[in-house]
Structures are given as structure tokens and as C-alpha cells.
Design a protein around this nucleic acid. Structure first.
Lengths: 129, 129
DNA sequence: CCTTGCCTTGACGTCGGCGGCAAGGTCTAG
DNA sequence: CTAGACCTTGCCGCCGACGTCAAGGCAAGG
């Protein structure tokens, strides 16, 4: 399988695949003419990468998952390093949720306050001609 | 007030203040020697900018708030444009919260699954010596 | 006079995950 | 023989809010 086919089957771009390679996540063989050659296993790896990226992981976070898959596991999540990253990411997400909740509350307060001010101004305009 | 003093009083850097200026958010006068000179009002403006940045606004989002302050309002939030931005940002935050909730759920599922797998493996190792 | 400490503009670096383009090699069909 | 559809490496661009020099001007104190 050449890079174009893998890109299409994995739902990504050749550019992204080369990028993953420069960052040590994918290791294709090379054919005689220098073309990158991928086997079926790499398809699963790339799909794992894409899934984790979509969830908000960075490439560095993803590396343990790829290593886990490459070690023969059916899932990239079962190795200790992966679990550690999952835990860390969960904590990060929780922190993000907390921040967003606080921000949301503040935005609602400010909106309410602003609207109250505007209505007050409206009233003044109507009662003081 | 020169730029250094404003930076210190507003809790930011001179670099940031010059950056805000190039983006049209702050308009200091100039003294004879070319130094930027700020009055007290600018301090409030900069604090407003900082507060909104901290909440996750971009400089473009902040512009209406500054204009509102400059128009003489006690708060930068009471003008229609500001309210529109507040509404939009609230919607964005809500969307972000939804996404994070979904991600969190997926992370929890994957963690639970991974740990279940590991315990199963442990059991197999103990029962098949 | 010299140092110290403020100020000025200008321009490049940061972070991440690529997109896009250039210049060229390779393979296949007609 | 040629067109076109692949592939290669390499390098710049992007977004946003600045950080970080660099090179120099201005003011004040000893």
C-alpha cells in the first residue's frame, strides 16, 4: 500500500502521514524506487492516531498508544503508559470543564447585568422626555 | 503615566501594551520625546482587555468592549455590540462544554476498558502458571 | 563624563498540526 | 514518445498573543 492509498483509507492526507513519520509515529518500509510502503497494521495505527487527535491529544501523547499497538496488543489503550496518559488527559479535561463552567457563569452574569442596565436606560429615556 | 508604569499597574508587560496599540485597542498620547503617555482611563481599558483575554476572548472580540468604555459607559458590557459578542461567546462556551463532556465520557470508557483488560490479563497470569 | 534605567522601532521566535507549492523522479497507458 | 498520475524532499505560511533580542535615543544622578 502506497501513501496515497493509506491516506484515503485512513481518511487523512499524505502530508499528515509524512508528518507523523517525521515525528516517529509511523514507520513505513521503502520500495526499490524510494516510495513508502505500508502494511495493513499501519492502517490501524493511523486510525488510532486520528481518533486520538480528534479527541484532543497531541502527537506526544499518542506515542505510547502507537507503541502499545505495535507491541501486539489489540487495543492501544491497555499498556501502562497509555493508561497514564488517559488518566492525565482525563484530569486535564476535568480542569478544562471546571474553567469553562466558571467562564460560562461569568458570561451569564455579565449578560444579565448588561441587559438590566440597558432596560434601565430604556426606562429612563421613556420617563424623562 | 508612561508605558512601564501602566504595565505594572495593569499587571501586564510593555510588550503587550504596544501589541494592543498596533491592534487599535489602546491609543496613548505622545510626549515631546516620543514616549507614550497614558491617562487613568486607559488603565481601566487595559484592565478590561486583560479580564476578557483571561476569559478566553480574542482581541477582535474585545474591540467592541473597549469602544463601549470609550463612549463613556461605566461598563464595557452594556453596548449592543458587546452584548452580541457576549451571546456568541456564551454559545461557543456551551459548545465547548458539550464537546468536553463527550470527550470526558469517552476517556472514562476507554480507561475502564483498559483497566478491565489489564486485570483480566493479571488473572490469566496467576491462573495459568 | 559615565552609568543606569527608562523609552523607541523593528524583526524574528514560539507552539502544533498540518496546507501548499516547487522542482524533480517514477510508472503506466495509449 | 508523451501525458498524467503517482511519488520524493524541502521549505514557507498559518493562527494569536505575545517573548526576546537588537540597536539606539533620552533623562537624571554621581
Amino acid at each position: 500500500m502506497l501513501i496515497g492509498e493509506l491516506a484515503e483509507r485512513a481518511g487523512t492526507s499524505t502530508r499528515a502521514l509524512r508528518y507523523y513519520e517525521t515525528h516517529g509515529l509511523v514507520r513505513p518500509a521503502r520500495s526499490a524506487n524510494g516510495y513508502r510502503v505500508y502494511d495493513e497494521a499501519e492502517l490501524h495505527v493511523v486510525r488510532e492516531i486520528r481518533a486520538l487527535l480528534a479527541v484532543g491529544f497531541g502527537l506526544d501523547d499518542i506515542r505510547p498508544f502507537v507503541a502499545c499497538l505495535r507491541a501486539g496488543n489489540a487495543s492501544g489503550h491497555v499498556c501502562p503508559d497509555s493508561v497514564a496518559v488517559l488518566r492525565r488527559k482525563l484530569a486535564e479535561v476535568d480542569a478544562g470543564l471546571e474553567r469553562l463552567h466558571a467562564v460560562r457563569q461569568e458570561l451569564r452574569d455579565q449578560l444579565a447585568h448588561a441587559i438590566a442596565q440597558r432596560e434601565e436606560t430604556c426606562l429612563r429615556l421613556r420617563t424623562t422626555p
